[in-house]
Lab assay of single mutants.
Amino acid sequence: ETKSLTLVLHRDSGSLGFNIIGGRPSVDNHDGSSSEGIFVSKIVDSGPAAKEGGLQIHDRIIEVNGRDLSRATHDQAVEAFKTAKEPIVVQVLRR
């Protein structure tokens, strides 16, 4: 079962304390579909994302501050987090 969660993150020394993997390839599949998503791959101990109620590894990131990342490329997702103003509201899907 997958549930949708909304989390609020604040940077600590400029970092949110997690890494992402995935992202849509720069070239779409011929039918326009994509199974890619942006997923949390690593969480830094005691970083902002590790706090209670924070992110978990394998969370799929859907949205950052209202910006849809469900079909974003990896670079677009990285840029969305880099430029996001605080508080950073992150919507994820968690299995």
Results as ranks from 00 to 15, higher is better:
14 G>C: 06
85 K>D: 13
49 A>D: 09
12 D>P: 05
6 T>D: 01
52 E>Y: 11
5 L>F: 11
21 I>P: 01
29 N>K: 15
43 I>K: 02
9 L>C: 06
28 D>F: 11
73 T>L: 03
21 I>D: 12
65 N>A: 04
92 V>L: 05
54 G>D: 05
66 G>K: 04
27 V>Y: 11
7 L>E: 01
4 S>P: 08
26 S>V: 10
53 G>L: 06
55 L>T: 00
24 R>W: 07
44 V>D: 13
60 R>I: 02
75 D>G: 10
54 G>R: 10
75 D>F: 09
89 V>P: 02
14 G>L: 06
28 D>P: 09
34 S>R: 11
33 S>L: 11
60 R>H: 11
62 I>H: 02
62 I>E: 02
63 E>P: 00
43 I>G: 01
25 P>D: 14
71 R>V: 12
65 N>T: 00
91 Q>L: 03
12 D>E: 14
71 R>L: 12
1 E>W: 05
69 L>W: 00
35 S>K: 11
60 R>F: 01
7 L>Y: 07
61 I>A: 00
69 L>H: 00
7 L>I: 15
75 D>P: 08
57 I>F: 03
61 I>G: 01
73 T>V: 02
2 T>D: 14
52 E>C: 11
7 L>S: 04
51 K>I: 09
95 R>G: 11
66 G>V: 00
7 L>A: 09
54 G>Q: 09
55 L>I: 09
86 E>C: 05
88 I>L: 12
17 G>F: 02
26 S>I: 10
34 S>M: 11
87 P>M: 01
78 V>D: 06
52 E>M: 11
21 I>N: 10
68 D>K: 03
66 G>M: 02
87 P>A: 01
41 S>A: 08
42 K>V: 04
17 G>H: 04
4 S>M: 13
23 G>H: 08
78 V>I: 09
59 D>L: 00
1 E>S: 07
19 N>F: 06
62 I>P: 00
50 A>K: 08
18 F>Y: 00
58 H>T: 05
30 H>C: 11
13 S>A: 15
51 K>Y: 10
95 R>L: 06
94 R>D: 01
17 G>A: 03
59 D>W: 01
16 L>W: 07
50 A>H: 14
25 P>K: 14
31 D>C: 09
62 I>Q: 04
47 G>E: 06
68 D>S: 07
27 V>M: 14
11 R>Q: 05
61 I>F: 04
53 G>Y: 07
22 G>N: 12
42 K>N: 15
57 I>M: 08
70 S>V: 07
88 I>V: 10
89 V>M: 07
51 K>H: 09
87 P>I: 00
73 T>P: 03
36 E>M: 10
30 H>T: 10
14 G>T: 07
85 K>M: 07
66 G>Y: 02
85 K>G: 06
45 D>N: 12
53 G>P: 07
85 K>R: 09
37 G>T: 00
31 D>A: 11
